[in-house]
């Protein structure tokens, strides 16, 4: 009923997903921030927030590298919203989490953070 980006959906790696949304090779940047816990006791609900102070933003992506589909969410930025979004994600295992900002001239900037997932869900 509505179009979606198949290449992005099937993207297995961070670089593939960025390419699917038209971004160039991602560069690490301090202007993208990712807020996530150091240790997630329950991998089914991991709060994550992304924000960026870069101008001319088009998309903000959240990715978990070791998930079967690495993309978690793609946020579209417009002039009427601040580039500061949060959501909750699932994580299958301990992995690096990436926040990627894609600007209108198709440059990509990222930041990453490792989130440890405790198996068993009992904090052991």
């Amino acid at each position: 009923a509505f179009a979606f980006n198949r290449a992005a959906f099937e993207a297995k790696s961070v670089a593939d997903a960025v390419k699917a949304y038209g971004g160039g090779a991602p560069v690490e940047s301090k202007d993208v921030t990712l807020t996530a816990p150091d240790i997630a006791e329950n991998g089914a609900v991991v709060p994550m927030a992304v924000a960026s102070t870069l101008p001319n933003l088009k998309h903000l992506l959240v990715m978990v590298e070791k998930n079967p589909n690495s993309l978690v969410a793609k946020f579209d930025v417009s002039d009427a919203v601040e580039a500061n979004f949060s959501t909750r994600a699932k994580m299958g295992q301990t992995s690096d989490v990436y926040a990627v900002a894609i600007t209108k001239d198709n440059k990509a900037f990222f930041t990453k953070k490792e989130v440890k997932v405790t198996l068993g869900g009992c904090g052991g």
Partner: peptide, 28 residues
């Protein structure tokens, strides 16, 4: 917001059950 799309998001399987989103809107 008044008929104009101000925010949209594509969600993938890794979003937790009962999807939660928060964003900040500039009141016009």
């Amino acid at each position: 917001y008044n008929g104009e799309v101000v925010f949209s998001a594509d969600l993938f399987p890794a979003i937790a059950a009962n999807p939660y989103l928060s964003f900040h809107l500039l009141a016009g």
